[in-house]
Write a protein that binds this DNA or RNA. Structure first.
Length: 840
RNA sequence: GCGAGAGUGGCGAAACUGGCAGACGCGCCGGACUUAGGAUCCGGUGGGUGCAAACCCUUGGGGGUUCGACUCCCCCCUCUCGCACCA
């Protein structure tokens, strides 16, 4: 056990109290100053803050405090993503009401966050399970309904037979229910959808206009949206006039190689094609078999391609060929037209299927020499393709499409992998969907003046039998807002991703009662300048939030196109090779670290141990190191208070360029070198934060300065005159405290006060490097012979190349390597290096 | 399979547009202070040969471009993440 630690407990409590009393981080709109909206993804109140949260909030807090010191009007809010499944699970397991469980967790976690000393404007705290909050998303739901952006349809969902409920995609892990581990089955049910596909193109296009986002996340979003351009066209059926099979393809150029066509088993046209009773039975059986395939089988990479050949046949309109028609398990209902033309020569899936079912394979693209593969998907010259022969793939695509359009058979079509967002959940702990079903009027949205539709408290939650709200008669039975007759409320609740799709707007005016947000406030603060959160939300939350923002824009509520200008995706916190999780039992609690080392140490370690985008390996020894460093800073400052603090310190004033200029150039080289390091540190720390968020190297620069501080102190008295020494010590100490402030706010605030400053260190301007101090007189130049370092020269900065060359060639350590050889060439890189190239 | 990213000391990691590889920290070794310290301060610490001065090797592997490559190009290996019959 180490001992003699600075009194972090006392200091942290003291300054947290002071900040709170002064309302130091409360902000209001101020058009005279540039704004900076710094936002961390708000947490789900699961119980306790862990080191993964701490990493997220430490990064956000550092940026918020840094930007404030740079003169920005910083909005830095915090709140709770309070609806969600774990609350209901707690109700099922422990019999505690989800609301009680949630509010207790929020209270505990809020206290934890406050003990971390995060610079939030707590007056703006938002809680999504409050009716005051979800009221507005109910209103937007109605607006979306009016515009066809919200609609109801029957669809296939993930159903857990044991829990008797629908699971969201993200709640299915490898085909199994995340809670009870039973196999998930598909099931058709009615539900509400948001028409995110209407924004597919715009969401995709803006992926190219978000330079502040990590490329990785943009790529994931592009893939998720999955735009593909192709053609839709009809295949007439033989002997059944009027019945056509519409197919979608991205390769119309290969149409001459179509040797069969495939329908998704559930395709509705099948009923028009099948007339024979025996075939009808076979189809029913095939459909049952495919439906029975478990989710796990579906996920298998080498899932066999099963097919059922129908009696009906279709015609390839390109060459009039009559070809067989199949039902196939490899064709999806939900994508394209649910039917494909099969071209085994140029599509591997079709190739596999054709081989299994003995179907012909026609090549329509000339293979490159030496080609030995199966289906060929590359570019080449068209063959066996009638009027397309001799063209390239791209040319043939165009010509084939034009031909289809001219013949009136089809049209160019864009398809997306992205599906509309199903938001109905058979859950209790969520925002009610503000819709009623009236016996006479049918589906009717709740009247605006009746909003919010409040989630009732009195409910039985068993985890079985679908929506708990369906059993709350006082909720279900309501008056139709249109005819005042009897109506039943929708008993599903909204996906909790809806709340998190707009909370950043609510922070702009969290108490506004006239709408989702006050227009002026949103116009001032939005968009978020820096968003920080885990990579696990790369697609879902971030895509939904982008979509929702565009909807709000199109409803005329905001002007912004995109919610988040810049995104920082921080890596996970890992312990013993695995992500920290309760089930793995490797969670490091924030309480433990804070009590043992203090909040500043915990924050510092997480910022120092790795750059933010990388995963961070938790290391107890590393935390010790962070703690040691802060103690080292503490001891030094306290030991020199009488030299650098109080009366000896110059009065508070502008600390930057103007102030720096008042420090005269030291008279000795040791003094000048030390002062240079102070200002180089300012420069490095600023650049590391500003440029690429490399806080780890910023901290290492501050550590180096502290090391230099100790070395400077230990210098013999004649290295630097006493008066200069005091000025330099003072400048260095204040610089360390200012630079370290955003990383470790409590200890720096305390030391700043100990130095005699009356005002918060966070009211001070961020230091600016003094160009005069940065100026070097001499540089060390490396001398290489044939690329190997053989010597070093110390020369004046910007020494003439010729002179450097002569010095290098004449250097005692260099000469032996050159003596017996002929000098071919001398490369001189100014202020850096000389490379002497020789030959035998 | 497709897409993206990453492989650097015992460990976490540095290295700007190609220019001293390993900053900073952990760990380890030594010294000082001390009754003692696992506290603190100072020093050392990639591998190898050597008493030493020095020299050789070293950024997953192999090639290439270059005076010079962790960095750029080609091939291969490994790992992580995302998507996974999307026509």
């Amino acid at each position: 056990m180490s001992s003699d630690r600075y009194p972090f407990g006392e200091i942290e409590a003291k300054w947290q109290r002071a900040w709170e009393e002064r309302k130091q981080f409360r902000v209001t709109e101020d058009p005279s100053r540039p704004k900076f909206y710094c936002l961390e993804m708000f947490p789900y109140p699961s119980g306790r803050i862990h080191m993964g949260h701490v990493r997220n909030y430490a990064i956000g807090d550092l940026l918020a405090r840094y930007k404030a010191m740079r003169g920005f009007n910083v909005l830095h809010p915090m709140g709770w993503d309070a609806f969600g499944l774990p609350a209901e699970n707690a109700a099922i397991e422990h019999g505690v009401h989800p609301a009680i469980w949630t509010y207790e967790n929020i209270d505990y976690m809020r206290a934890q966050l406050k003990k971390l000393g995060l610079s939030y404007d707590w007056d703006r705290e938002v809680n999504t399970c409050e009716p005051d909050y979800y009221k507005w998303e109910q209103l937007i739901f109605i607006r979306m309904l009016e515009r066809g952006l919200a609609y109801r349809k029957r669809s296939t969902v993930n159903w857990c037979p044991s829990c008797q409920t629908v699971l969201a995609n993200e709640q299915v892990e490898d085909g199994r229910c995340w809670r009870c581990n039973s196999e998930v089955t598909p099931r058709e049910i009615d539900g509400w959808f948001f028409k995110i596909t209407a924004y597919a193109d715009e969401l995709l296009a803006w992926c190219d206009r978000l330079p502040g986002w990590p490329e990785r996340v943009l790529t994931m979003q592009r893939n998720w949206i999955g735009r593909s351009e192709g053609v839709e066209f009809d295949l007439p059926t033989v002997g059944r006039p009027g019945v056509r099979v519409r197919v979608f393809t991205t390769r119309p150029d290969t149409a001459f190689g179509m040797t069969y066509a495939v329908l998704a088993p559930e395709h509705p046209v099948v009923d028009h094609l099948v007339t024979d009773a025996g075939e009808r039975a076979a189809v029913a059986q095939f459909r049952a078999e495919v439906a029975k395939e478990s989710e796990i089988e579906r996920l298998a990479a080498d899932r066999p391609k099963r097919g059922l050949r129908l009696l009906a046949r279709v015609v390839n309109p390109f060459n009039g060929a009559v070809i067989p028609l199949f039902l196939g398990n490899y064709v999806l209902t939900g994508y394209g037209t649910g039917a494909i033309m099969a071209v085994p020569g140029e599509d591997q899936r079709d190739w596999d299927f054709a081989r299994q079912h003995g179907l012909p394979i026609i090549e329509t693209v000339r293979r490159p020499p030496g080609w030995t593969g199966e289906a060929y998907t590359g570019d080449g010259i068209k063959i066996n393709s009638g009027f397309l022969d001799g063209l390239t793939v791209a040319e043939a695509k165009r010509k084939a499409t034009d031909w289809l359009v001219a013949q009136g058979l089809g049209e160019a079509k864009v398809n997306y992998r992205l599906r509309d967002w199903g938001i109905s959940r058979q859950r209790y702990w969520g925002a009610p969907i503000p819709v009623l079903y009236c016996d006479t009027c049918g589906m009717v949205p709740e009247a605006e003046e009746n909003l919010p539709v409040v989630l009732p408290r009195d409910v039985q939650i068993s985890g079985k039998g679908g929506s708990p709200l369906a059993n709350v008669t006082s909720f279900v039975n309501a008056k139709c807002p249109r005819c005042r007759g009897r109506a039943r409320r929708d008993t599903d609740t909204m996906d909790t991703f809806v709340e998190s799709s707009w909370y950043f707007f609510r922070y702009c005016s969290p108490h506004y009662e006239g709408g989702m947000f006050e227009r002026g406030a949103a116009e001032y603060w939005m968009p978020v300048d820096q968003y920080i959160g885990g990579i696990e939300h790369a697609v879902l939350h971030l895509l939904y939030a982008r979509f929702y923002t565009k909807v709000l824009r199109d409803l005329g509520l905001v002007k912004v196109d995109e919610p988040f200008t810049a995104l920082l995706s921080q890596g996970m916190v890992i312990k013993d090779g695995a992500k920290m999780s309760k089930s793995k039992g490797n969670v490091v609690s924030d309480d433990f670290i804070r009590e043992k080392y203090g909040a500043d140490t915990g924050r510092l370690f997480e910022l120092f141990a790795a750059p933010p985008e990388k995963d961070l390996e938790w290391n107890d020894h590393g935390v010790e190191g962070a703690s040691r460093f802060l103690n080292r800073v503490w001891r030094f400052v306290l030991a020199h208070l009488d030299e650098v603090g109080g009366a000896r310190r110059p009065a508070d004033g502008p600390p930057d360029r103007a102030r720096a200029a008042t420090v005269p150039t030291p008279s000795t080289e040791a003094g000048r070198a030390f002062r240079r390091q102070i200002h180089e540190t300012i420069q490095r720390v600023t650049e590391d934060i500003e440029h690429d968020f490399h806080f780890n190297t910023a901290i290492s620069a501050i550590m180096e300065l502290v090391n230099a501080l100790y070395a400077f102190e230990a210098m013999s008295p004649d290295a630097v005159p006493a008066a200069e020494r005091l000025v330099l010590l003072s400048e260095a100490v204040e610089t360390v405290i200012l630079l370290l402030g955003p990383f470790c706010p409590h200890i720096t605030e305390e030391l700043w006060a100990q130095l005699g400053h009356r005002e918060s260190v966070f009211r001070r301007r961020w230091p600016v490097a003094d160009p005069a101090a940065l100026k070097k007189e001499e540089v060390t130049i490396v001398v290489q012979v044939d690329g190997k370092v053989r010597g070093r020269l110390v020369v004046d900065v910007d020494a003439a190349e010729d002179r450097v060359r002569q010095l290098a060639l004449g250097d005692d350590r260099v000469r032996p390597w050159v003596a017996s050889r002929r000098v071919e060439k001398v490369v001189v890189v100014p202020n850096r290096l000389v490379n002497i190239v020789t030959r035998a």
